[in-house]
Design a protein around this nucleic acid. Structure first.
Lengths: 236, 236
DNA sequence: GAGTGGTCTAGACCACCAC
DNA sequence: TGGTGGTCTAGACCACTCA
């Protein structure tokens, strides 16, 4: 045997997904079925499935199965990341949050596409700025599914939407896709942030999924570049 | 039992590392010893050790043991990442590389500290720019340990240093720590890149380690922000 | 209640490393 | 040659989902 058994099973399933044998949204055969059809033990199948999960091909749900995810835009191996905003939450200096918008509307065409929802699905729109030492540095724009979050208040937004979702509503956030770009500031950026002559904005886009693999939140975090910093620990 | 057994073992070992019971560079007790002292099976210990490894606490080396890593600067959970440069390597359009410097010198004081080496350790200094469609967009600055890489030529640098290291020298790169910031361009950036009025540079710093957990390369990749893009798939 | 994934066990053989 | 981690097996019990 040239390769590890679990690795060849992994590659086999990746090919099946890429060839459309399992479409996005489908569930894979159960671990017992896979063990039988690959003539191996269940633990070995589980190693292969865990790698598929780590690489973003599937999401495992207890009692249901392994759901195939949409990999179109994310077909290379990447993983965790910590932003300045997330870092600051574990530091002593808390940012001061100002809520600029908190509305309940129909989603824009762009959001309908990004979140794969219809026009009739109501969404919360939240815009907040974060200030450190009286300098407004981060602009956070959130879109959340009203069907999952029936109530949202200014107080909640000034604190932390995440802790409200997880602790008070009891929803379990499963994973997030992130995208980072550097862009020119918009008029909105210039009016709500202390840009101080900076001509670039670091934009972190988050697509947040629940345990059942449904997208329920889109977050855009726009950072002034001088206070921006990522640290990453990459395993090859 | 409140928690998973493997998770409580994981937490126990994390505490031991943070409390200095195992110092950076030490090896943990073997998997068989740990299985015995936690009254569990070896596979369960391995689950805990794999999580320690994923979170950057240890590095497992076959035949030797689990080496404790220095977590001082990296004590939060993060992982993989793909830069525009790394992406472009898997695309059809290859960048044109220009080698601006290829010298063998004593390391600067900054490099001595960053790479934890002495003044007498010779290092290669490589500076290259990468052009796409005749626009110079990325500046790559590399510092490599001469003791690991006795020969280095202009031809190798114009191709790929990585493939030379891995395929020709047979060295195995184990993992890399990355840091991303946005900075003002230096004079060097302005002279070697086509900045075109851009007043920011996206800087990706890489600390590359070999299998025996020794740091052997420092890479700094300086991108023009318009052609910069990260995509990340983060599991919580 | 049948089926799913999550955890755990006690063994086995292997490749690799150091002495 | 003995010890290390890497892989694999054939079972077991559990928590969870869904009809």
């Amino acid at each position: 045997m040239q390769q590890n058994k679990f690795h060849s099973i992994y590659q086999h399933l990746v090919q099946d997904i890429k060839n459309g044998i399992y479409a996005s949204g489908d569930t894979l055969p159960s671990e017992n079925e896979l063990a039988q059809s690959f003539s191996t033990s269940r633990e070995t199948v589980r190693k292969a499935l865990n790698r598929l999960s780590q690489h973003g091909y599937i999401q495992k749900v207890r009692g249901k199965g392994s759901i195939v995810l949409d990999m179109q835009k994310f077909d290379f191996p990447v993983s965790g990341l910590v932003s300045f905003k997330e870092l600051s939450e574990s530091m002593e200096e808390k940012p001061a949050t100002t809520v600029h918008e908190l509305t309940l509307t129909n989603p824009s065409a762009m959001m309908q596409e990004a979140m794969e929802i219809g026009e009739e699905q109501l969404v919360w729109n939240v815009i907040r700025s974060r200030a450190f030492q009286r300098e407004s540095i981060i602009l956070d724009k959130d879109v959340l599914l009203y069907s999952k979050i029936p109530k949202l208040s200014r107080e909640i937004c000034e604190d932390s939407i995440y802790s409200y979702i997880e602790h008070d509503l009891g929803l379990t956030i499963s994973f997030a896709k992130k995208e980072i770009t550097v862009e020119e500031p918009t008029q909105e950026d210039e009016s709500l942030l202390d840009l101080d002559g900076f001509s670039n904005i670091v934009v972190i886009k988050n697509f947040v999924y629940l345990e059942d693999a449904t997208l329920f939140q889109y977050t855009e975090s726009r950072h002034r570049p001088d206070k921006f910093r990522f640290v990453d620990f990459a395993r090859r």
